[in-house]
């Protein structure tokens, strides 16, 4: 009897150790980046473009680039994503078409981000002739964010009780009126959550923008969608691996890492909070 209990105690302790290890790793990563980056982050750092071989100045240009790319990606992905979610939850019937669409989406979700980057290069940059540009980068990032937008929106539609659909249809509303007047507004918090998660995904990715938009250094902001742009994740990659003097840019690297990390984590937290808030608010 004692033996079985000892075994259990040992096993459970080792599981607890696993949890402790993961918590420790997370805090170590966060602590390292925050403690070394916090001194860099100032108003000047956020509002100045990089200077002097990126050793000084700030990160304004890459930050603006990332914001533009995220907005562009969502403009590209949101309509298609929401319409697809509507198909999946309101129109699709069991069958071959549905299972094909579902497996396409899950495959899209599992594709390596560099593969999206190469597809963007082959199609948006070369075939469509956009060149490396905000347009090509946004479309590539949008494509990559589609699965998360679809999944979150679909869950939002699925959580709306069937009785609202019945009530609307029984009044003589058409299916589309029912979707437009009821389902879309009620699903809005969920769609918003998906949108924020999509932005956070688009803002943090590097591989898809390597060849479709990202520029090593630009003195000015992009002035049209056909211009190249700097971007935060790519900026961090360049600073930490390719700058002329790695030591000299170390502080800028940490500052950039901290800003990128904060932006992405803030977006994710916002998504979690919005979801929790509306789950509590709408108890149909």
């Amino acid at each position: 009897m004692l033996d079985r209990r000892t075994t259990q105690a040992v096993v459970f302790s080792s599981f607890l150790l696993c949890v402790a290890l993961v918590v420790a790793i997370l805090f170590f990563v966060l602590f390292d980046i925050i403690s070394k980056g916090i001194a860099m982050v100032s108003w000047e750092f956020l509002t100045q473009p990089p200077r002097n071989n990126m050793r000084e100045g700030g990160i304004l240009t890459p930050m603006v680039g990332t914001i533009l790319l995220s907005i562009g990606a969502m403009i590209a992905a949101l309509p298609v994503g929401v319409l697809t979610a509507i198909y999946l939850s309101e129109y699709a019937r069991e069958g071959r078409a549905l299972s094909l669409v579902n497996s396409a989406i899950s495959n899209l979700a599992g594709l390596p981000s560099i593969v999206f980057g190469l597809f963007g290069l082959a199609v948006f940059v070369n075939l469509f002739g956009f060149g490396p540009s905000l347009l090509a980068g946004s479309l590539t990032l949008g494509l990559m964010s589609l699965p998360v937008i679809i999944k979150t929106s679909q869950e939002a539609f699925a959580s709306i009780p069937f009785s609202f659909r019945e009530a609307s249809l029984a009044l003589g509303a058409t299916k589309w009126q029912t979707i437009r007047h009821h389902l879309l507004p009620y699903a809005m918090p969920g769609i918003l959550t998906g949108l924020i998660l999509g932005v956070s995904r688009a803002a943090g990715e590097t591989a898809p923008i390597l060849f479709t938009v990202a520029a090593y250094f630009l003195a000015t902001m992009p002035s049209s969608v056909f211009d190249q742009s700097m971007a935060l994740p790519y900026h961090l990659y360049i600073l930490s691996t390719q700058s002329f003097n790695l030591r000299a840019t170390q502080n800028v690297q940490y500052g950039t890492a901290l800003v990128l990390l904060s932006v992405v984590l803030a977006l994710n937290s916002a998504a979690i909070i919005i979801r929790a808030y509306f789950r509590r608010k709408y108890r149909w």
Binding site: L26, L30, A203, G204, E205, Y234, S240, L260, L261, N268
Partner: peptide, 22 residues
């Protein structure tokens, strides 16, 4: 502890790579 995993999942890969490098 749930947020711990969620935060870890949310860190951009280039930031993890940067941590690895430094």
């Amino acid at each position: 502890l749930k947020p711990v995993i969620e935060i870890l999942a949310g860190i951009p890969s280039v930031v993890i790579g940067f941590f690895g490098l430094t």
